[in-house]
Simulated scan of single mutants.
Amino acid sequence: MRNLQTAARLGSATIAALPGDSMTAVLAANYNGIPATNVLARLVTDLTTNREGAEELARQLNLTAATVLDTAIGTKRFEDEVIGQGVTGRIADGLMRVTGINVWTEGLKRAFSMEFMGTIARQSEHTFEKLDPMFQGFLTRYGFTPADWDKLRVAPHIEADGAKFFDVNAAEDQRLADRLMSAVIDERHFAVVEPDARIRGAMTGGLQRGTIIGEAVRSATQFKSFPMTYMMTHMMRALTQGMANRTYRTTQLALTMTIAGAEMSQMQSLIAGRDPQNMADPRFWEQSFIRGGGGGMLADFIYS
């Protein structure tokens, strides 16, 4: 039944992902001092005219290992868990591939990571004290000291298409470089919101698969891991700032995701052959706030 639900309800997952992912990528980029327009521009270029070149550069930058691992263990963005076996499982998995959601997701991951590596290369010209405040905040959050940065910034760069990228393989202290790559991947989870093992464990309550209660809980919480992940990433980050930053980040988060929800609602109306919704109606913006994720998991349950 869950396989059939996936096949029936997630045919427009890509349409929902386009505006939402663009907004979360912008939020994550701005939070770390990365030019958000560069991320989106690289995404469009890589998915259209430079697919082979982007994949080759990503391999040089060690950005493909996580993608291969994701595919190998069968993790999916909107399906909450590995799709089951059998005919219905293959139908659901095939439909998700046809919609292009996998191509979009991996493309955005790659674009964000590559621009992050480019930012590290550009910032390597400066000492720790003279770094961009947002990028310096990134290093501080993940426990990198000025001495650590001095070791990383002297590593040779990879040059491609007139741009420089940090080369993790060229760092003298490989353990330190691995820590930096781990931090980049952690921040990528904010750009492309995906449920991790912690979220999946919370959504199942630790109940065993194959039991009546365990299967009932999995059915009741199907498609709810995405809003839970959103709450545990962007909303949690906004709420753990200082009071001034908390107000700014929370307002920014609510506005951007409401805009994403509005875009998604209008796109789905047009695709379904309906007229665009009336944007002067307060109910439209209430719906956009909920659908964009601004209302969190409780609002998503109520809306459903």
Rank of each mutant, 00 (worst) to 15 (best):
170 A>F: 09
167 D>N: 15
232 M>H: 13
16 A>K: 13
244 A>H: 13
147 A>N: 09
223 F>P: 08
153 R>W: 11
86 G>D: 05
265 S>L: 15
137 G>S: 04
272 A>I: 06
66 A>V: 13
63 L>K: 06
42 R>V: 03
58 A>L: 08
221 T>H: 08
223 F>K: 12
70 D>Y: 06
261 G>F: 03
44 V>G: 02
70 D>R: 11
273 G>M: 13
116 F>D: 01
296 G>T: 00
256 T>P: 00
246 R>S: 03
82 V>A: 14
277 Q>P: 00
202 A>P: 01
115 E>R: 00
103 V>C: 05
12 S>R: 12
72 A>C: 06
27 L>W: 09
291 R>V: 07
122 R>V: 01
42 R>N: 10
206 G>I: 06
283 R>T: 08
259 I>P: 03
40 L>Q: 11
173 D>C: 00
132 D>M: 01
204 T>E: 08
192 V>A: 05
177 A>P: 06
164 K>Q: 14
19 P>H: 14
215 E>D: 15
144 F>G: 00
189 H>D: 12
199 I>N: 13
251 T>G: 15
258 T>S: 04
284 F>Q: 06
197 A>Y: 01
139 L>I: 00
16 A>S: 09
80 D>W: 09
55 E>Y: 10
223 F>R: 11
275 D>C: 11
54 A>W: 08
24 T>N: 15
51 R>H: 13
205 G>Q: 07
156 P>Y: 14
294 G>M: 02
33 G>P: 03
192 V>F: 11
207 L>K: 10
36 A>N: 07
116 F>M: 07
142 Y>K: 07
274 R>D: 12
2 R>T: 11
43 L>G: 02
90 R>M: 08
112 F>M: 01
292 G>M: 03
119 T>R: 09
224 K>G: 02
78 F>G: 14
212 I>P: 10
49 T>A: 08
145 T>F: 04
240 T>N: 00
241 Q>F: 06
158 I>V: 15
45 T>W: 11
238 A>S: 12
172 E>W: 02
9 R>M: 11
151 K>V: 05
56 E>M: 06
122 R>G: 07
187 E>K: 09
220 A>E: 09
266 Q>D: 04
289 F>H: 08
176 L>C: 01
145 T>P: 05
260 A>Y: 10
139 L>G: 06
297 M>L: 12
153 R>E: 04
279 M>C: 05
25 A>C: 12
132 D>I: 01
93 D>Q: 15
19 P>E: 09
292 G>N: 02
185 I>V: 15
232 M>D: 01
270 L>G: 11
287 Q>L: 07
120 I>G: 01
144 F>H: 00
37 T>V: 07
58 A>N: 15
45 T>I: 09
249 R>F: 09
102 N>K: 14
